[in-house]
Design a protein around this nucleic acid. Sequence first.
DNA 1: CTAGGATGGCTTACACCGTTAGCCATACCC
DNA 2: GGGTATGGCTAACGGTGTAAGCCATCCTAG
Lengths: 186, 186
Amino acid sequence: MMASSNPEARTPRAREIVAAAREILEAEGLDALTMRRIADRLGIRAPSLYKHFPDKESLEAAIISDAFEEQAVAFEQAGAGSNDPLWDIALAYRRFAHAHPHLYRLMTDRELRRDLLLPGVEARAGRPVYEAAGGDVDRARAAWAFAHGMTMLELTNRFPPGADVDAAWRQGIEAFRPGMAGGGGG
Amino acid sequence: MMASSNPEARTPRAREIVAAAREILEAEGLDALTMRRIADRLGIRAPSLYKHFPDKESLEAAIISDAFEEQAVAFEQAGAGSNDPLWDIALAYRRFAHAHPHLYRLMTDRELRRDLLLPGVEARAGRPVYEAAGGDVDRARAAWAFAHGMTMLELTNRFPPGADVDAAWRQGIEAFRPGMAGGGGG
DNA sequence: CTAGGATGGCTTACACCGTTAGCCATACCC
DNA sequence: GGGTATGGCTAACGGTGTAAGCCATCCTAG
């Protein structure tokens, strides 16, 4: 059936493959995510996977698509009914990345193949951020970039050993609060 | 001689190898940066490279070390004598990444092997940012994270087609100006 | 009830990857 | 002149994603 990006439309077997792949990814990282290892976990041989996904990239895209949905849910929950949505969504963003570091890397490392994703899933994960930024797209994008940068620097171990990463997060979130700093500039 | 991280201490041949590797990287991207391709460009065979570098990671580290130095120079020049150092360094940061997108990816994708770098080179590239942030480490780190996040989102094509990326940069830089937004937070 | 097509396995194989082992020519130095 | 580094080489290993082609099972249509 050549599993689609829509998880509802996936063959049961395709679902099992995605699950196996994700388990390997989360437990052992990107390097361990090979077609042979995935097949092993299911008791089959690597070439058989190609009966379900056209290539590795599509399989990864299925994982990524699911992850975007999970992010969307987490951000929506974090923002709903919060009296400090920017803060709570940022916290949820950070938490997601730390709970699934390898998954986060998979989602953000490469160029995004939107054509392989469930349509709209990327936008859905972004909307809460947009709203928390007071409806200002540019501010929302800047805040998003801050959160992403912060996360990547954490995950790639870029801060010096004693660095107060929490304080940097606080600074950034404060800086992007609606009502601060206008548009201007050079 | 097993080329060191210090470019001064590199064998002439090691310098040629680093140069060849960097040319391939910048011209064709990370996937093209293979030991066989590097060797090809020098008219030798891949295993011969191991007479000069213990492994591929060390060769990459040499490229990364050089890149940090170039960044440091660029940031120092951008900050020196500027009456808006934060802005000018951010601009230099963005320019460097856009001038060398594959190099930038190589520098930031993986965990940093500091032990393979020329000592101090990383700190040197960071200092101008720290100073431009008014000497506040947390603010400097937040601003750095913003710049890095912004850059990665640009390079991985994450913004929607019509997005005003310049405006997002402006917003972020404004947000991190010294004298705005205090430490506080939850 | 049987023919046919889809489904989902399999083996074999290819080109590429980083890397090791071991051989050998040149060049320099005591 | 002998010994030692230097810097090439070939052959090979185990890993990668993936293509080609074979075959058993099963569902469905006639």
